[in-house]
């Protein structure tokens, strides 16, 4: 292996952190997917399982934090190694928050009884969900391959999420005017869309972390 660390254990510890992030990311993606599906079908039966999985995601966040802390304390990494140890802590935090959004998405399935007038809005929200899943998957690939070009594409894709969020807001407002009786459900959908928009921001942050790991440059600080 090129650029192998002299201490093999160090490389093993670093790659284990990476594996954990990827596993956590996969779980979060499936969480979003399942929550969105439950919401679409207005099926409350899955909600308990999804809440339980979210607890597992929180546990994984803690595990990654501990591993990174131990690695820094015992091996005192510098430069690239240090970034590879520190930034996963942030990335796990972002993933944990996306997981929280998925959980609240699933909880909404209990509260909505019928989409009714909000059907078009619901479709747009589902579109956001799919987009978010794709972005997250790409961010994870970018992280896995240290691909800053892909990371930049992920950041670009977030604009589409923002656009959809605005579209959801406009469409929901229109629907409330037409059938004020369904206002409550529509407001909930607006909030849900905001959730996904936030999720997009978290994925963007992850893409920034990937960029920082590879180049050492902090995009947030420079922009």
């Amino acid at each position: 292996m090129k650029n192998a660390h002299i201490v093999a254990r160090f490389d093993e510890d670093l790659s284990k952190i990476k594996t954990r992030i990827l596993e956590m990311g996969k779980l979060v993606i499936s969480q979003i997917k399942d929550a969105s599906a439950a919401l679409e079908r207005l099926d409350a039966s899955e909600v308990d399982r999804l809440i339980a999985t979210d607890r597992r995601i929180n546990g994984m966040n803690k595990d990654i934090h501990n591993r990174a802390e131990r690695l820094i304390a015992l091996r005192q990494p510098v430069a690239l190694d240090l970034r590879q140890a520190i930034l996963p802590i942030n990335m796990a935090g972002e993933l944990e928050r996306i997981g929280d959004h998925a959980k609240s998405t699933a909880k909404l399935a209990r509260k909505l009884s019928d989409a009714g007038a909000g059907e078009q809005v619901m479709r747009m929200v589902q579109e956001m969900s799919v987009l978010l899943q794709t972005m997250l998957a790409q961010a994870l690939i970018a992280y896995s391959h240290s691909d800053i070009k892909l990371a930049a594409e992920v950041r670009e894709a977030d604009k589409e999420v923002d656009r959809l969020n605005k579209a959801v807001f406009a469409a929901a407002l229109q629907a409330i005017r037409q059938s004020p009786a369904e206002a409550e459900a529509l407001v909930r959908l607006i909030l849900l869309a905001r959730n996904f928009e936030r999720g997009g921001d978290h994925v963007v942050n992850m893409a920034r972390h990937v960029h920082q790991i590879v180049t050492g440059e902090d995009l947030k600080a420079s922009s």
């Binding site: 650029n3 660390h5 002299i6 160090f10 990494p77 510098v78 430069a79 690239l80 190694d81």
Partner: peptide
């Protein structure tokens, strides 16, 4: 980079 991180 390789030297300070202890890589070959």
């Amino acid at each position: 980079q390789n030297y300070i991180t202890g890589r070959t």
